[in-house]
């Protein structure tokens, strides 16, 4: 039973880790929103994390090793990959810009500031939810320890 409560810590912890990675990519995207370049190859592209549920297979291995608890289902979340957005790049005609190419274009990243702001809020709320879950699990655990007193 206590084992199960421990796995809530792991689940909420994985959620917090995933959300902070998301917050990290958002911070990186916003910091580089105006980083210009003179070619499409070297310009910064918005980075997006790909979330995936921790699958049963991993848990099953844990189970066989004797450390797993309950579940037939996934246990937490992980960041499977961080991909670069393939949204169209922002080409601006600025012939006097030091980074302008032969045709006078400067290439700006495909970062959408509005999208990043909403992502930031969503990540911070998600983080908060997981903190609350962990806090609740902690209280439950403390209660078990006081059983019979």
């Amino acid at each position: 039973m206590i084992m199960s409560l421990n796995s809530i810590f792991d689940i909420a912890g994985s959620g917090m880790a995933a959300q902070s990675i998301r917050l990290n990519t958002t911070a990186s995207n916003m910091a580089n929103a105006n980083t210009a370049a003179s070619s499409t190859g070297e310009v910064y592209r918005a980075k997006k994390p790909v979330f995936a549920a921790v699958q049963f297979q991993t848990l099953n291995e844990m189970h066989n090793a004797g450390v797993g608890s309950v579940g037939e289902e996934s246990q937490g979340v992980l960041v499977k990959d961080i991909v670069e957005s393939d949204a169209p790049l922002d080409m601006r005609y600025e012939p006097h810009h030091p980074l302008a190419n032969e045709e006078g274009y400067v290439i700006y990243p495909n970062v959408n500031i509005v999208e990043e702001m909403t992502d930031m809020l969503s990540a911070s709320r998600g983080f908060q939810t997981n903190v609350d879950v962990m806090d609740a699990a902690k209280t439950m655990m403390q209660r078990v320890l006081s059983l019979g007193q």
Binding site: I11, R22, F51, A53, E73, S74, Q75, V77, N130, V133
Partner: peptide
Amino acid sequence: ANNLANAD
């Protein structure tokens, strides 16, 4: 808790 961790 698992549902909440996988909200996104």
